[in-house]
Design a protein around this nucleic acid. Structure first.
Lengths: 133, 133, 133, 133
DNA sequence: GTGGTCTAGACCACG
DNA sequence: GTGGTCTAGACCACA
């Protein structure tokens, strides 16, 4: 199973799919050129409607993360080696970071622990960087 | 104006209010015991329905961040000095962290820059720690 | 009726809606701030499913032409006074222009006539520019 | 290479082939009597299925732009010296022009720049008129 | 009452 | 066999 979703989550399913794909790319499980399952296939695997998968893929396409080809289906287009971020992206991202970090502080997670966990997560992403070489 | 919201954002207004309050607590602008504006007051200030403010406050109450009295209104209950997080919270938070960091990696933001920005944001929260009382 | 569509056209209905809205903005029938009909309303008027209208509006939103607000519905965001094009847009547009002009040449429409018709169309867009002032 | 296509474009491949052939005729690279590559040849060159090329050629034939013989293959039939357009064609073309110009206006491209670019493109088509023969 | 989400099924376009 | 389009109906989130 490429990815798992939570049907009971308040996060829309298509958003969960999108997030899981992004995480798979970040962790190196998917890299530029990797093919994603067809919408109907993934829909069947996850026991959801293929239209929902379609929406997730369409979102990824709009964000330049995958490309969709009638013949070969969805293919990863951008991975962590694809170069620096487009302008505006980083800024919008930092706003979300700020909200998430504020959340941590208020919930009592210590700043050093926040940074420690962040480092750990980033290393799980980076650790697979040596493998494909 | 205590906080600003974007009526055109895809983020629900009540969620924006909640996030801004959390950020205000994290940055020390609000601390345990501080009173929040009344729902009607804030609704008028933001030119939105006070039911929407109500929903935001209720969400904050459910998450243990504020408490609501019929008399004294909404009061901040938890701030960054309130001790360690509850067990489930930290775990759920880290999942969101993972998604956000994956996003950064895929968009091409370098890991060291991610940590740098995180540190910077955390310092804006911590710096005001000495100031109050 | 704000706009008309052709159900038999090979152009997707949602694309037609999008194009008609863009034309209405260009001709001044709609300007920044104008409200569009609700998706269900327009769907009923055009005798099509509201999901199709939804897709058209979503496309317009992605392209920054309208904004969508849960309360007030879809509102025009960008009109001909909204300033210069974003980089990349003009280039992509010129490619489409090149294809369209090639078509005209091959079909035997004379270059001077092409320019004449273009000017005429542009004037119908510009002519309403004095009115709202 | 006579023409290039983008496999990832949202524009169907057969449409891209058609458009490129039309542009080649407009620019004088192809003129009435010129032979097009065989469908299998072009399919091999572009690394696509020859059925797709077939579809593009068939479309061009339906539009009176090329003729297809079993013996001599596809031959250009109409170029910019072939006389005035058929009545319905010009009208349908102008509708597409109107949509494209509206797009430019809304995106903020100034009318004079639209006409300037149009003139420039038309000149690249006309300039080669003296060259052949 | 507004848009958003999900499901579902049919048909078409493309390669 | 792939994705794209359209329709349709139900339910929910939001204001």
């Amino acid at each position: 199973m490429l990815l798992t979703i939570d049907l009971d989550s308040e996060v829309p399913i298509y958003q969960q799919i999108r997030d899981r794909v992004v995480e798979a790319i970040a962790s190196g499980d998917l890299e530029a050129g990797s093919a994603l399952p067809s919408t109907r296939q993934l829909g069947a695997d996850l026991a959801i409607n293929f239209h929902t998968v379609n929406k997730a893929y369409d979102l990824l396409r709009q964000q330049g993360i995958i490309r969709i080809n009638r013949k070969s289906g969805a293919v990863v287009r951008r991975d962590r080696r694809s170069g620096p971020p487009e302008p505006g992206i980083a800024q919008e991202w930092e706003e979300r970071l700020r909200t998430l970090l504020a959340e941590a502080v208020v919930q009592g997670i210590r700043p050093d622990e926040v940074l420690g966990r962040s480092s750990a997560v980033l290393e799980t992403f980076a650790s697979s960087e040596e493998l494909p070489t």
